[in-house]
Nucleic acid binder design. Structure first.
Lengths: 223, 223
DNA sequence: CGAAAGGTTGACACGTGTCAAAGTGGGTGG
DNA sequence: CCACCCACTTTGACACGTGTCAACCTTTCG
């Protein structure tokens, strides 16, 4: 994924990625408490990451799709502090973190890339804090939908239609709302003619209105 | 700060830290949009970091004290995406990020340390999402106070008393609550005999009760 | 075809926000 | 050194958004 590498460097990267792993829908890639050994690059499929406290309350901390890296939470204490669960059948590349570190000492462009990936995650979470701390339900859902469709579009899908891979409850957990509120807010956006919703299928009819509802800045940076 | 370095390596680190900078109370160390060049290690003083969206809504994303690193948000896009403001007169070490990268290619222990610092921030923010998404006002404030006093204690201060460096409004922004709610919650904890509050002075009278109010797991990991 | 999981909608409760007024304390200038 | 001012804090009354609980509907899958 980093750009500007020489052929020999790309070869080393290929060797580092020792193998791939299939993860069936509903299966965990790693769980809270698992020893940390590797980062995972998602090749295909869709994941959620979540933390659970002992009350049993679950917080979805992110949704990840092809091309994104997960597992960064494990670095600090050599064990994972959240769980990653496939929301559809998925395949990941296993990147042993020790190899990542070795190689990024040799290849400055890779080092740079790793730092950027981690910083991007920090900035994304800053944006999430803004969402969770300051925005109302409608704003949160608008920002969420815009972010999702933008990321899908960057992967060659439509910029107006999508099929959600997660339940209302999972969206709610991510956005700090209850599933009923998500459902009601979908209905409201639909009644207002801003989106079309049929279960997990969502079509954005008035993207500009949706952007005004969410937050110009937030759309760019957040999520 | 990384441990297990040889003398020669420590010397290189010292050379990297080109200079220090004084930041007066209320002054910005860096602002949203500033070009990113360096990380900052806080030597003395107390900071807040915050993001602002164009509605003018401000979200405090963290409070940082001596020994902590700020500026990681700037790596991904070579410019800062939040602002850092001193809440009391402070001094920081300026660590040019290019030098950090150069040196961590030479010194694996430093590389490891940088990765851990970034991962720790990601995990902290995961915990904040749990707070903002799932916890009620009293739980949030309890967790906040416990975290703060624990970090102060690790720096040689009391484990039961502290003087807050931030206003009710800043606490509220951080915790996703309004300043009046913070004030009321302080009063409630005080009425219940759990803490003693006099303006910015806070004394924890019943730490165990406070821990139950917040969340055992959260106290360890979060914030 | 039936059951289970997920989604929608309504009525009502409750926690937090909003607005307003008054109290407190610290810093500055006369 | 005192007094004033301003920023911060506290508290009350009320509003409002979201949560809770319950019933019913839809879709999927064995």
């Amino acid at each position: 994924m980093p750009i500007g590498l020489e052929v020999s460097e790309i070869k080393k990267l290929d060797e580092m990625i020792e193998k791939r792993r299939q993860v069936k829908q509903g299966q965990m890639l790693y769980a809270n408490g698992d020893p940390f050994t590797s980062l995972y690059a998602i090749r295909t499929g869709f994941f959620k990451t979540c933390v659970v406290n002992e009350d049993g309350r679950e917080q979805v901390t992110g949704f990840q799709m092809a091309g994104e890296i997960i597992g960064l939470d494990g670095i600090v204490s050599d064990q994972h502090s959240c769980s990653a669960i496939a929301l559809e059948d998925a395949e990941v590349c296993i990147m042993p973190f020790a190899s990542v570190e070795d190689l990024s000492r040799e290849i400055p462009a890779l080092q740079r890339h790793v730092h950027r990936v981690m910083s991007r995650e920090i900035v994304r979470e800053n944006g999430m804090m803004m969402m969770l701390g300051n925005m109302r339900a409608e704003e949160r859902l608008a920002a969420f939908l815009l972010n999702l469709v933008q990321r899908l579009h960057a992967r060659g899908f439509s910029q107006s239609e999508m099929v959600l891979r997660m339940t209302r409850e999972e969206i709610g957990s991510y956005l700090g709302l209850k599933l009923e509120t998500i459902s009601r807010t979908f209905s409201k956006l639909s009644d207002d003619g801003i989106i079309e919703v049929k279960q997990r299928y969502v079509k954005i009819l008035a993207p500009d209105t949706l952007k005004k509802l969410s937050n110009p800045q937030t759309c760019q940076t957040v999520l």
